[in-house]
Design a protein around this nucleic acid. Sequence first.
DNA 1: CCCTGATTCGC
DNA 2: GCGAATCAGG
Length: 224
Amino acid sequence: MEWTDETIGRLKALWQEGLSTAEIGRQLGITKNAVVGKAHRLGLPPRPSPIRRQDAKTAKSGEKKASSRRATKTEAPADGESVAPVASAPEEKTAAPVEEAVKKAPVVSSVAAEVAQTVVTPVAPSPVAEKKAAVSVVAEDVALEEKPASDAPKKKAASRPAFRPTATTSGVEPRRRGASCCWPIGDPGTPEFHFCGATPLPGKPYCAEHAALAYVKLRDRRDS
DNA sequence: CCCTGATTCGC
DNA sequence: GCGAATCAGG
């Protein structure tokens, strides 16, 4: 994966929109692992995760690498070392009510509801590239996804319908307070980088102007 | 089972 | 740095 400014910018934008990593990956044509990995390396703010791994330090005896996690998962303790059980520390409940509010439905739901028949999906057609084009008419190598055309031997693409109302997407997001258009402007990472900031359309993360750019028909972009 | 995000670590 | 494999919670 070539992480250009465009792709990184889109990743950031989509990430901020609250889309799932898998969804971001689908739109970028990469795996969710790539998305998460990159997001972490970029230091993007972690989003509400269902899981809470270890405490990173409590059980952090770096022995796992001995046989590599993939090789042996049923790794027996081998040594007779007593497994000094840490006194189960009373887990602090970091449950912030805010999280619940924020982690709500990615904008897709509301949009899909509106258009009903015309399935749309939020896609940022390289807003950054747009600006670059203004400066120089360079043929940007917008990462064109290499869709498997026909079904790959794998059984992927099963959940392609783009929008499937699930428990997570059914709720209406209450976080529209003081919202502003989050269309990325400028090069991510530079001080000039910012988001549009205009008043977004109800239920959408973009203002009217950018929503028109952001929401394209799924069919149109699939076989592009 | 499916989904989700997080982490690890070979490459 | 990248991301598949893996883990782990819902």
